[in-house]
Nucleic acid binder design. Structure first.
Lengths: 266, 266
DNA sequence: GCAAAAGTGTTAACAGTACACCCATGT
DNA sequence: ACATGGGTGTACTGTTAACACTTTTGC
């Protein structure tokens, strides 16, 4: 009745996820704040190819799941996090990007609150730093011992994502496959998503101070903001809880929550 | 050496493309302008499944091409258009969305200038009209004889695209597969992309009047704009060519082009 | 002249920026 | 008291919205 689709060659399809979180050191002293640290979840590969190198969490799609469900299942296994909203980032499909054969990667990104996640064995958080340098990007990933994994990424288009670079499949230093490029694209998209604060809320607990929210912005955008202006900008999206943060050695902060009549999407 | 990826079940992958264009009737009279009409390219399916129903152009991905290259090849076959920039829209992967089996659709959208395209046999342009109605969308596609194909689409999230609706695979009236939903998502994304005028330029010839550009906006956003304000808004993106449109029965319009120092991406 | 379309100017409202200043707390 | 962070007001600037007005053409 129908054409037999299996007469055509078929690819394997993976879901790969860039998971960002904000980790916060405790206060440096009773009266000094410390900035949160933008971090990404990476797996040290236990198997071929690229054994021992760092890679994004993800896995092969199977018939019983949508791609997003595969991503959710993998995230549940690695972090215990339940079904965070996923943003589609890009599809990478150039033959040669994976030495095992024809493998298409559907890439997503998401944000989770650090205290909600317990990472399992070979999954670790790495601090993310991105620097632009005459058209290329320098991506530095730093583990908790201070070891830095540097990758240089050149994006073909800009962050508009409708194209993919020829060099995408060359593993960059300690990052397997084209995963360095994926992380760079995800960070660029995260930054532009901060025009609205929905993404930032996902990095904070339900109640937060406006300073904490501002620190999320400063961490992601990698620049300082003026408090008065920032507060006016996000005022429509938050509401006071009535509660107060205590014991911080200064004027106590009001605690806010996101307004529930605004969308949670990122 | 490596795990054998072919031991897992593998999906077929298709690239589907929502191609928009702006068709312009000739002037209704020597002194009345007529609005351009937003149109989308659809194929009347010559084969099972859904024979005779309308569907998006697209085709199965093969090993030798990236997904974008497959999309480009299919567009070349249907319209003769050479490699327009593609914007990633969504991946649809729910089992059951295609009766032939496990088929993942990678959906893109793009814009082309009408005069550049020659459609082949069973490909036709359909006028697009979208109406929101308490959370659902009514999509009306009209052929050149005035026949209307109506679909009702309910998006699970909004236009943020990280989810897909359970009913996605139910063919909507005359649209095969979940293609009605894809067109709705593409139109919503096209609308929000008009914050910058790059997308609009792709619907016009190299030289155009500001009124033509404004008509593109009004056509896509489906609302009237004020001329003076519109001109100020897009002024940074265009420049005068020095030439003048003649023979229109009114004060002649200056012809503009897009400034070449701004990105062409959509 | 006149209808239709091209194009400009004027104003008020609003959002973004920079900065000055006051408030509340733990030591 | 004082240092530190929390929080507000104000003045300046640029952008957007609404509307009134002038210009140029073919008939």
């Amino acid at each position: 009745m129908y054409y037999d689709i299996t007469q055509y060659d078929q690819p394997s399809v993976t879901a790969d996820i860039v998971v960002f979180t904000a980790r916060k050191n405790d206060r440096e002293s009773y009266r000094h704040l410390s900035m949160p640290v933008l971090s990404v979840l990476l797996i040290r590969r236990p198997e071929e190819p690229y054994t021992g190198m760092l890679s994004l969490p993800g896995g092969f799609c199977c018939r019983e799941e949508t791609i997003e469900e595969t991503a959710h299942r993998k995230l549940r296994e690695k972090t215990g996090i339940k079904e965070p909203p996923l943003s589609l980032l890009c599809n990478l499909s150039k033959l040669g990007r994976d030495p095992r054969g024809w493998i298409i990667s559907c890439c997503y990104w998401t944000l989770i609150e650090y205290s909600n996640a317990q990472t399992e064995k070979n999954a670790e958080w790495y601090e993310v730093a991105l620097e632009e340098k005459n058209g290329s990007y320098i991506l530095d990933l730093t583990d908790d011992k201070g070891k830095v994994y540097r990758s240089e990424v050149r994006l073909s288009g800009t962050n508009e994502l409708y194209n993919q670079s020829a060099e995408a499949y060359i593993p960059q230093n300690s990052l397997a496959f084209d995963h360095a490029e994926i992380i760079v694209r995800a960070l660029l998209q995260l930054r532009s998503s901060l025009e609205k604060p929905y993404a930032a809320f996902r990095l904070l607990p339900e109640q937060f101070t406006l300073t904490e929210l501002q620190q999320i912005y400063e961490m992601v955008l990698d620049k300082k903001l003026l408090m008065a202006n920032f507060r006016r900008k996000i005022a429509p999206y938050v509401e006071e809880t009535g509660e107060i943060e205590t014991g911080a050695g200064h004027r106590p902060s009001k605690l806010f929550r996101r307004r529930t009549d605004v969308s949670e999407e990122i």
